[in-house]
Every structure is written in structure tokens, then in C-alpha cells.
């Protein structure tokens, strides 16, 4: 009986590998990344790259297990949803008002610990943010907003 369950599980695992996850490709547009559009200080840039860019950019680094179902489904949907809400690589295309909205939300969510999603730092320890990191991001969002309004 136990063997049967094991076989069934293994079978399912193999079968779902053939279900396409619809993994979103990276399609960077030259010159439109936030780093090319605004002043992003080095320490802020490091945090953005380490903790945000794997879902919120066109520079996603997919690890090997992101190709294995069912993890691939989760990763694909996170990246798709992440980019929909904010794509740092397509910063130039975001209307000014939306930029101000997004910056406010970045500050709020990072300050409150809602972002990065708690599951992410498990496999990406470099994305674990300290209290100082969070404050750094919050202050940068305020500065960047003022800069945009000038």
C-alpha cells in the first residue's frame, strides 16, 4: 500500500514536469532600468539587486530548481505578479504618479517586513534584510520621491 502511494506520487511528479509553467523571460530594455533613470546609491542598489530583482525586474536569476515542477509554478507566478506590480527594469515606462505610488508602497512594505516575501530569503540568505537595511530603503524612497517632484 505504501509502495503504491509512493509510485503514484512519483508518477504525478513526473507527469507535472510536462505541464508548462509559463516561466516569464527576461526582456530588458536598454536605458530604462531605475539605475539608469535615477540616482540609486550603492548600498541601496545592493539591496534592490539582492532582495527585489528576482521578481521585480527583467534580470531574474532562475535557479535550477525553478525549472522543476511544482516549484516552477510558484516561481513563475511570483515573478509574473511581481513584475505586474513593479518592474524596476522598465522604470522609464512608469508614469510619474505611479512612480510616486510605487515608491510609497516600497517604503511601507519593506518597513513592515511584508517584502521581500518571507519565503524568499529561505533560499536566498542575501535577501534577508536587517532593520538598518529596511530603514535605508525607506529613506531612499522618500528621497527619490522628492527628487521626482523637483
Amino acid at each position: 500500500m505504501k509502495k503504491k502511494i509512493l509510485y503514484a506520487l512519483l508518477g504525478t511528479l513526473i507527469v507535472i514536469q510536462f505541464v508548462p509553467s509559463g516561466r516569464p523571460d527576461n526582456k530588458p530594455v536598454s536605458g530604462s532600468d531605475i539605475h539608469e533613470q535615477m540616482n540609486v546609491p550603492g548600498d541601496v542598489s545592493t539591496i534592490l539587486t539582492n532582495a527585489c530583482y528576482d521578481c521585480h525586474s527583467q534580470k531574474v536569476n532562475y535557479p535550477w530548481y525553478a525549472s522543476v515542477a511544482p516549484v516552477s509554478f510558484l516561481v513563475s507566478s511570483d515573478v509574473r505578479e511581481g513584475r505586474e506590480n513593479l518592474d524596476f527594469s522598465l522604470w522609464e515606462k512608469i508614469p510619474l504618479k505611479k512612480k510616486l505610488k510605487v515608491l510609497t508602497e516600497i517604503g511601507e512594505e519593506v518597513e513592515e517586513g511584508d517584502m521581500p516575501l518571507p519565503v524568499y530569503p529561505f533560499l536566498h540568505p542575501e535577501a534577508k534584510l536587517s532593520q538598518e537595511d529596511r530603514e535605508l530603503i525607506l529613506n531612499w524612497t522618500k528621497q527619490a520621491s522628492e527628487e521626482l517632484l523637483d
Binding site: K97, K98, L100, K101, V102, L103, T104, E105, K142, S145, E146, L148, L149
Partner: peptide
């Protein structure tokens, strides 16, 4: 709110 935040919030409200 600061001007920047207020604009951001208003944008969120309309969305």
C-alpha cells in the same frame, strides 16, 4: 502627508 506621498496615495485611490 508630504506632497509626494499624497500624490502616491491619490493615484492608488483612483486605481
Amino acid at each position: 502627508l508630504s506632497k509626494a506621498k499624497l500624490i502616491g496615495k491619490l493615484d492608488a485611490i483612483s486605481e
